[in-house]
Design a protein around this nucleic acid. Structure first.
Lengths: 148, 148
DNA sequence: CTAGATGCAAACAGTTTGCGTCACT
DNA sequence: AGTGACGCAAACTGTTTGCATCTAG
């Protein structure tokens, strides 16, 4: 079903079977330069494939992330996290167990803008996440959710 | 009920009434140097106040955030966002409408560590969010969810 | 032909809300 | 004394899962 060779190749490289739904989901995502919620993406994709189901969108987003074709913008969607540390600081985030540790702002060279931002955007603050594996997770299976 | 003067003052400054539950929630959060999920925080707080309800924890987290005593770690908990942009880049995040825009990595001075990270942490990548108000939101009610 | 993808509906997890009672100011 | 906080249970929203059918390879 009219799948582009580009998308076929991309899927082959990532060891996924190429389906029409996947191509439309992936390409819609790329064409949008924002990072829409699954719901919004679903509405967009529905214009192309009216019969697609929301579950398929979710399943494929997960598949793409696992295959490395997409990355999650925030590792903490799904649960509220708050910060009571009033000092300027950054976060160390474990990609595996999702733990968040504070890192003093002085540990990083100051963030400096080198070019103009899009017109009208008013900066409030910078937030830096250093993403990786915490000691515990890097000792066990790398990149997988730890068992204990 | 045995509330510390410190906490009383903190609440007064933020125009909140000081309750035992609030003090325990807030101080538990501060004593933990991680950023636990509401569920985990609830379990901790329950050791002090066995009768507290999870709803109270949620209500107060929200109250504290609104009062400015806490800040949300991620503005996108509650909805999955993915990134299909393979080029190194940062994100402009609108604190009001939650829109995410890409910003080329070259727009920011390179992130450099000035000190050692906690032992055993393996860095995978840096993720920088520039948080503020997008053009649209900064034109309308500042900091509030836009109506249209 | 077979493994895996899809669509649907039902199940889940995290969060919010309504309401009667209780506590702070 | 009155406003607002608490605790409970029910409602919601976003996401996942089970299963029957269909499709890519």
């Amino acid at each position: 079903m009219r799948l582009s060779t580009e998308f076929r190749d991309l899927c082959r490289r990532h060891k996924l079977s190429a389906t029409h739904q996947r191509q439309v989901i992936f390409e819609t995502l790329q064409s949008l330069h924002s990072h829409p919620s699954p719901e919004v993406l679903y509405e967009r994709v529905r214009r192309e494939i009216p019969s697609i189901s929301l579950a398929t969108v979710y399943k494929n987003l997960k598949t793409f992330v696992e295959a490395g074709m997409l990355r999650e913008v925030s590792l903490h969607h799904g649960t509220l996290r708050v910060d009571s540390n009033p000092h300027p600081h950054h976060h160390l985030v474990c990609a595996s167990c999702k733990a968040i540790m504070d890192l003093d702002a002085a540990s990083l060279a100051p963030i400096r803008l080198k070019s103009k931002l899009p017109k009208g955007f008013q900066v409030q603050r910078f937030s830096v996440d250093i993403i990786g594996l915490c000691r515990r997770c890097s000792r066990t299976r790398r990149g997988t959710v730890s068992s204990s």
